[in-house]
Amino acid sequence: MASTASFNDRFSPAPPPARPEHEPMTAVKTATKADPKLANAWKTKAGGELTEAELLAMPDSEYMNEKQLEFFRTRLQALKDDLLSNAGQTTENLREDTSIVPDPADRATIEEEHALELRTRDRERKLLKKISQSLARIESGEYGYCDETGEPIGLGRLLARPTATLSLEAQQRRELKQKMFGD
Rank of each mutant, 00 (worst) to 15 (best):
66 E>I: 01
74 T>K: 13
81 D>Q: 09
91 T>I: 12
97 D>L: 15
55 L>T: 02
57 A>N: 01
114 H>E: 09
97 D>V: 14
83 L>Y: 07
130 K>G: 03
125 R>Q: 11
22 H>D: 11
57 A>H: 00
92 E>Y: 09
129 K>E: 11
9 D>V: 08
9 D>N: 07
111 E>P: 06
99 S>Q: 12
26 T>S: 10
46 A>G: 14
25 M>S: 09
48 G>A: 12
57 A>V: 00
80 K>S: 11
46 A>W: 05
48 G>Y: 05
116 L>P: 02
49 E>I: 03
78 A>G: 06
94 L>V: 05
86 N>T: 11
91 T>F: 13
24 P>R: 06
71 F>C: 00
110 I>V: 13
127 L>I: 05
39 A>E: 04
28 V>Q: 08
121 R>G: 02
69 L>F: 00
110 I>E: 07
98 T>H: 11
76 L>C: 00
109 T>C: 10
41 A>E: 01
96 E>A: 15
74 T>F: 03
6 S>Y: 03
70 E>C: 03
110 I>A: 12
88 G>S: 06
44 T>K: 11
67 K>F: 00
123 R>H: 07
92 E>H: 13
89 Q>A: 10
91 T>Q: 14
108 A>S: 11
40 N>W: 12
50 L>A: 04
62 E>G: 01
59 P>Y: 03
104 P>V: 07
97 D>K: 13
93 N>E: 09
39 A>F: 06
127 L>W: 02
117 E>G: 04
119 R>Q: 13
